[in-house]
């Protein structure tokens, strides 16, 4: 025998879960439906051609795909030495103490700054700096471009990768490390031959999650990438990423097919990040479960 109010309460709570589920599936369905017109219009050439000319209704999203991948990968590569150093610093060398708290708070602070402010700062501080470098190198001194965007992205994802990698490094059982120390290994040898082999899949997953984040990052990139819808020829060229082209053109997309093209870009972006996220999370979940059992 169950009381009516309990049944009602359970129904409300359950509908919150169902609501969340509907929200997310609705999100996917909306994107797919509204992206259809452009695929009907251009077919697969949407993905594989590189002319983006809304006036002549030519929609080739390849430059954005390439721009996104290059910017994000470059950003992650630049950030790696820094984020991994912080992770080892906090996870292995200084797991506690004042210095650790200081570093922890500093990286939290870095993670808390809104992305539009990174973009602003990048535009007014990093871009002029890049311009000087480009003049030295004797190339077109745009200032803004893929390289600048990658540097800003790198700064933004350092705290993210660092915190995931640190958690993974902390999962390494201390008796394994102690066994290596007992055999006379130096600290670096323990890191190199015990910690890294044990944690490498988790760290890779963390890098993947960071990549997903870099791909989806919008504001900072939009402000410093230069917004040019052409195929980039060098990493100092202005370009566009999937996120930045949406941010720039969505509000002024006049006709339906143009809008649909931008929504299709959003769909691609969504799929890209979701796949990376799910895979990264899957690996990390597996590792954590292995630890707990």
């Amino acid at each position: 025998m169950k009381q009516l109010s309990d049944t009602l309460f359970n129904a409300v709570v359950r509908s919150c879960a169902i609501g969340t589920l509907i929200l997310v599936s609705g999100l996917c369905v909306t994107l797919v439906i509204h992206a259809m017109p452009v695929f009907r219009h251009s077919g697969l050439s949407f993905l594989f051609t590189s002319t983006w000319d809304p006036l002549r209704q030519q929609f080739g999203a390849l430059p954005f795909l390439v721009g996104t991948v290059i910017t994000a990968v470059l950003g992650v590569l630049i950030s790696l030495p820094f984020s991994l150093s912080i992770a080892f610093f906090l996870g292995e060398y200084f797991p506690s103490g004042k210095l650790s708290i200081f570093f922890q708070s500093a990286t939290d602070l870095l993670a808390g700054i809104p992305s539009v402010i990174y973009g602003f700062w990048g535009l007014f501080v990093v871009a002029p700096f890049m311009q000087k470098i480009e003049i030295r190198l004797g190339i077109m001194p745009y200032g803004v471009g893929i390289a600048t965007a990658s540097i800003i992205l790198a700064i933004m994802i350092v705290p993210y990768t660092a915190s995931i990698a640190r958690e993974i490094i902390k999962l390494v059982p201390s008796d394994l490390k102690e066994a290596a120390y007992a055999l006379g290994a130096t600290r670096w040898e323990v890191v190199r031959h015990v910690v890294i082999p044990y944690a490498h899949s988790g760290i890779l997953a963390g890098i993947l999650l960071a990549l997903g984040r870099a791909i989806g990052e919008t504001m900072a990139v939009t402000m410093v990438i230069g917004n040019r819808n052409e195929f980039p020829k060098s990493i100092f060229d202005p370009a566009n990423t999937m996120a930045s082209v949406i941010a720039n053109e969505f509000a002024e997309a006049s006709d339906d097919i143009y809008l649909s093209a931008l929504i299709a870009v959003a769909l691609l972006l969504f799929l890209f990040t979701t796949v990376m996220n799910m895979f990264g999370r899957f690996v990390i979940k597996k590792l954590t479960v292995r630890q707990e059992s």
């Binding site: 969340t20 929200l23 919008t218 969505f250 959003a266 990040t273 979701t274």
Partner: peptide, 28 residues
């Protein structure tokens, strides 16, 4: 099942780029 799929949905939402939310809410 419902818990499993809700968790998946939340994970997806957490990892989605914020610009995508803008696009979807614009359409909605």
């Amino acid at each position: 099942k419902l818990s499993y799929w809700t968790r998946v949905a939340v994970d997806i939402l957490q990892g989605s780029p914020s610009i995508v939310m803008g696009v979807v809410v614009y359409l909605w």
